[in-house]
Design a protein around this nucleic acid. Structure first.
Lengths: 102, 102
DNA sequence: AAAATATATTGACGATTTTCTATATGATGT
DNA sequence: ACATCATATAGAAAATCGTCAATATATTTT
């Protein structure tokens, strides 16, 4: 996974409103209008955040008639977790000796 | 965990240079001057990124003489993983029925 | 004590992001 | 066909972020 993709994934989680949106989706699929009622932004701003979340594949949207239903993507979340794991586990193989010794 | 703290944690992972820094630390503790050699930013910019990473507790700094050694904080990483887990697991308890039915 | 070295802080600037208003698109109901 | 409703897009303003040069601080070396 390249740095660019990794950054895009975690951008999902570094804005307070997006965190609120994700939290709302923990209780199941919701349409945009329901999300809009619960977070304090305008409709176009919500739409903007949903695009970021969908592009990062943390959330998936499903159109049905005039409504769009959003839900947490289990697949995307799994990928984010793997990405975090890979990024933060110590690499014993290539562990280097020392640095800046006196 | 409040939205503000969550956002601060994941800000660590949403800048390409910070991702590079964390990746470099996977092979073990490194002093700032070593990191500076490897990523293409000025010394004040590196210092700025290290502050963000340390404030989020993803990285810890250890001063020794004139050097500062940085390493991945196992504790902070654990907290980030738990935070991601908590934020993204479906909440079956409070799962709501339906939304925007025709 | 003065010079040198490593890192942090300050302040400015440009780029990016978040937000808004206005408008467009697309579906549904009359 | 026309009005209505849900959502998306465009464009601009405001806020935040990443970056740099200059400078400060703290430690070590001479």
């Amino acid at each position: 996974m390249d740095e660019r993709k990794t950054a895009a994934i975690f951008k999902s989680f570094c804005d307070e409103n997006r965190i609120r949106i994700i939290t709302l989706l923990r209780s199941g699929e919701k349409c945009a209008c329901k999300l809009l009622e619960e977070i304090n932004v305008t409709q176009p701003t919500l739409s903007h955040h949903m695009k970021i979340l969908c592009d990062a594949e943390i959330v998936v949207g499903r159109k049905e008639g005039k409504w769009t239903y959003y839900s947490i993507s289990e697949k995307g979340v799994k990928q984010a977790k793997e990405c975090l794991e890979q990024l933060t586990t110590l690499d014993v193989e290539y562990k280097n000796k020392s640095c800046c010794e006196k």
